[in-house]
Amino acid sequence: MKLKLAVYWTGSCGGCDVSFLELGPGLLDVLPQLEIVFWPALVDAKRGDLEKLPSRSIDVALVNGVIRTAENKEMVELLREKSKQLGAYGACAHLGGVPALANHAPGFTEVVFGPGFRPASPWPEAPEDAPPALLPEALPLDEVVPVDFVVPGCPPPAGLIARFFQAALSGEVQAGQVFAEDKALCEECPRTREERRLTRIVRPHEVVPDPKTCLLDQGMVCLGPVTRGGCQAACPQAGMPCTGCLGPTPKAGDPALAMLSALASLVRAGEEGEDAFPQENQILDSLVDPIGTLYKYAYAKYARPLQRLARRREEVRA
């Protein structure tokens, strides 16, 4: 029996769909075992085709991309209904991803397109063909439908895709499973740490990092320590700090807050003590774009409760 697979994209760059090719020759082993019932990026299929499928007839559905429009939402709800198991594939579906940073600027359409912007129908005579409405916020998949498992990454690295197929083809995908390590990236990172202290913060373009020592020790804000392993620390190996695409480790909670408290712990200017505080604050303040750096992928998932809290506080005040 072949595995009935659906793959769908919502607010996505398309990279996730392409990422399957990362399997290389391994793909040749996988493909014959699959029956692709729905995959718009690969085979022509329309919403109507999906609607025709009986309920829970798809074995596994993978959704990549953020939930950005009303249509995205309807489609994943439909997929949910038709599938036995539904997984978030890639950082956008998992955490909101880069496109969900837009939530940080709620009036962004005005900022980008000017006041009064409203998506207009290209055919004013047929308003039902207007582009789908934007949701007030970009959402990770599990805010819209129950999600059974996650294949994380931006895009998911080959090793993790392979791990997913292995489990899926033998029917062993567990509820809540995340196809990555529970331990942080540092576990896999070949770089060595010297003295654990942060004396400055630099951006990747500002230095040529030493090839052997930990990037964090060199002043780069590497999210390795809060991020799940599973990619063999690909970015740090190439001299780029980890940006956290595999998502936080199971107990890290909000990765930005966890990293912030780690940075605040590590920062050191001169002798420890209050005298050093102003200088240490300066070092921490030199972090450019803290939201984009620390929440690059996870803003929608983790900053939302904080935003809700802030909104609630304003309501209470008012």
């Binding site: 331990k183 990236l185 540092c186 740490r193 003295e195 202290r197 320590p225 107990k251 712990s265 590590l266």
Partner: peptide, 15 residues
């Protein structure tokens, strides 16, 4: 330490 989760990043030690 929860050894199942610790990556050995070493951030804790100097603190």
């Amino acid at each position: 330490v929860n050894e199942e989760l610790c990556s050995g990043c070493g951030i804790c030690a100097p603190q």
